[in-house]
């Protein structure tokens, strides 16, 4: 388990922004900007698991992809400390050529196992692709590594000549995991990596991800909608709302006592796994519109849907500020509210 006394900072993200143009019509006119990630700062320690949670469309995948430099960030810094080195590089400032060196270190398990697998390649080529692209291994050696990682993720190496369509959703997800881990990476962004799996295979896969973390000293950025999975695997949790962090805390503290009203609403919607309790759950309703990242509300972006909002919330943007207990939260009323957790 992660111990923060003896680790080093592997990632320090500073005021990171990723904006996309919003284009309309045949004339491809730019009609606005989608602020998918809009000023995120966070530090990640080596060997820990930081989970990113939040509403669909709040920018979790974009944040993960921007950190791995799948995109050219609009602004901000991504300070990265490579394994076995004391140097820190700002990935945000590197061009594609300079980035090449770090690609095998920084890997992504994609959210959509269907679109991220090339249907025309057999599985062996899909999983070994990053080995060839980064000149790490080829031929028999690459094949051995593929067989090895397939076994580790619970796939039969005999199937490596099959094409992706011959696998079920859950099996394809494991192919995606195998491809991410085959380069022996340092930081892995796992985007809904276990969502397509049934509870039993998911348990195996989570155990595997944790074993590999210990064995290979991996750092995970773990995006998931399944809060019981997040609670199980995360050391710390970052809660996002329209492109920003609203709360960042140790997993247990967050579940025990959220400090941000959005986090409280999120937790209250976790389904209870027994039909007798159907309808008995008190769900915090989120009235009003889902926030639009092209036009986020003034002040606190959560204020139009927040049951605790006051006048100040409409006017002033709350800072992401440290509270006494080493937690950070961005809410004007964090000190006075006593919100309900789920543990």
């Amino acid at each position: 388990m992660f111990d923060d006394s003896k680790t080093k900072t592997v990632l320090q993200v500073e005021d990171l922004k990723m904006h996309f143009p919003l284009i309309k019509g045949l004339m491809r006119r730019r009609v606005g900007t989608v602020k998918a990630v809009d000023g995120v700062s966070m530090t990640v320690q080596q060997g820990e698991t930081v989970a990113l949670v939040g509403e669909s469309g709040c920018g979790k995948s974009t944040l993960g992809r921007t950190i791995l430099r799948a995109y050219e960030p609009t602004a901000g810094h991504i300070h990265y400390n490579p394994r076995g080195s004391d140097n820190v590089v700002d990935l945000a400032g590197l061009n594609n050529n300079e980035m090449q060196k770090y690609r095998p270190d920084l890997r992504m398990i994609f959210q959509d196992p269907f679109t991220s697998l090339n249907p025309r390649l057999p599985v062996v080529d899909i999983i070994s692709e990053p080995l060839r692209a980064n000149k790490i291994a080829e031929g028999v050696e690459a094949k051995d590594r593929v067989a090895d990682i397939m076994r580790k993720v619970g796939l039969r190496p005999e199937y490596m000549e099959r094409y992706p369509h011959a696998f079920s959703g859950g099996e394809r997800q494991r192919i995606v995991i195998a491809r991410a881990l085959v380069t022996n990476p340092h930081i892995v962004v796992a985007d809904e990596a276990v969502s397509a799996l049934d509870v039993s295979v998911r348990a195996q896969t989570l155990n595997l991800l944790q074993d590999l973390q210990d064995e290979l000293d991996l750092t995970y950025l773990f995006v998931s909608h399944d809060l019981s999975v997040v609670e199980h695997i995360a050391d710390r949790i970052a809660v996002m709302y329209v492109g920003r962090l609203v709360e960042f805390a140790r997993a247990e503290d967050l579940f025990r006592r959220p400090l941000h009203p959005y986090t409280e609403a999120l937790f209250s919607a976790i389904p209870i796994p027994h039909p007798k309790l159907r309808g008995k759950q008190h769900r915090v309703q989120l009235p009003g519109d889902v926030a639009d990242p092209a036009n986020p509300p003034s002040g606190c972006p959560f204020h139009p849907r927040c049951a605790y909002a006051r006048d100040i919330c409409k006017k002033e943007v709350p800072e992401l500020a440290e509270t006494g207990s080493g937690r950070t939260v961005s809410c004007h009323r964090a000190d006075e509210l006593a919100l309900k957790g789920v543990l």
Binding site: V199, S200, V201, R202, N207, F255, P273, V342, L343
Partner: peptide, 20 residues
């Protein structure tokens, strides 16, 4: 077995999950 492996909040931290 499937029903028995529903993860429960607050019960599994720091432990291995049980799979069939």
């Amino acid at each position: 077995a499937l029903l028995g492996s529903i993860p429960e909040l607050g019960k599994t931290r720091g432990q291995r999950l049980t799979a069939i």
